[in-house]
Nucleic acid binder design. Structure first.
Length: 218
DNA sequence: GCCCAGGGGGCTC
DNA sequence: GAGCCCCATGGG
């Protein structure tokens, strides 16, 4: 796993995730980026910022319709408005300083986050890793696709199995996890996309490229 | 016109 | 509990 990381880092360089000024902004971004290109998320976050809606409690106060209209560029805007307000409500219940996000036990926080409407495993782990600084590996569909192609897992990809693989083999270093996940996204969007360009892949000989037809999309 | 993007909830069977 | 469908905009 470290070998893969080193090759990706050498090829793509540091990715600079997660771009946000505050933990609250990171949490908002984690919802907005669900199945959405980051470019569109930035637009939505800028619109929230322009309207002073990037602090705990502000989204609840503004209400669903206002939030929905502002985040429209990021897609799924009616769903995501509900999710953002549910998240904001949770943050308020926990304390608006948000120190708890870094200080409390990540396992406990994970359970709480998963209970919030609109937060699943990937979003919860993103919040724990990037906003909380906890050593929790974030798995996404790219990770599953890439590991399938590398021949390191059997289909279908399982979130927690994959997460365990990384966490068993890597040092528990949040900065490493942050960079690694970002690099996997770079690979998944780049050479190892749904129609892979194996000749341009930085993993080269590590990947025993099986026939593409043996893999499902996504 | 088609496909994809830094998922998750809800419904059916 | 697996298999679908829905959400929705913006860019290549």
């Amino acid at each position: 796993m470290l070998d893969i990381y080193r090759r990706l880092f050498a090829f793509y360089g540091p990715q600079g995730w997660w771009p946000a000024e505050t933990p609250f902004e990171m949490c908002v971004g984690a919802i907005l980026t669900q199945a959405t290109a980051w470019r569109n998320v930035e637009i939505a976050i800028a619109r929230l910022k322009d309207n002073n809606l990037l602090s705990p409690g502000s989204l609840v106060a503004a209400g669903e319709e206002v939030v929905a209209e502002l985040i429209r560029p990021s897609g799924y805007y009616r769903q995501k408005a509900k999710r953002l307000i549910a998240l904001d409500r949770y943050i308020l219940s926990r304390g608006s300083s948000m120190d708890w996000l870094k200080e409390e036990d990540p396992q406990r926080l994970r359970q709480e986050l998963l209970a919030v409407h609109g937060i699943g495993p990937e979003t919860a782990d993103s919040i724990l890793l990037y906003a909380g600084g906890h050593p929790v590996f974030v798995v996404d569909s790219y990770t599953g696709r890439i590991l399938l192609r590398l021949g390191l897992i059997d289909p279908p990809p399982d979130y927690h199995r994959i997460q365990q693989m990384f966490m068993d083999e890597l040092p528990k270093d949040p900065a490493l996890y942050q960079e690694y996940h970002a690099l996997i996204v770079a690979l998944g969007k780049g050479a190892c996309n749904p129609k892979p360009k194996c000749g341009l892949c930085p993993l080269g000989d590590i990947c025993r490229a099986l026939p593409e037809s043996t893999f499902p999309r996504g």
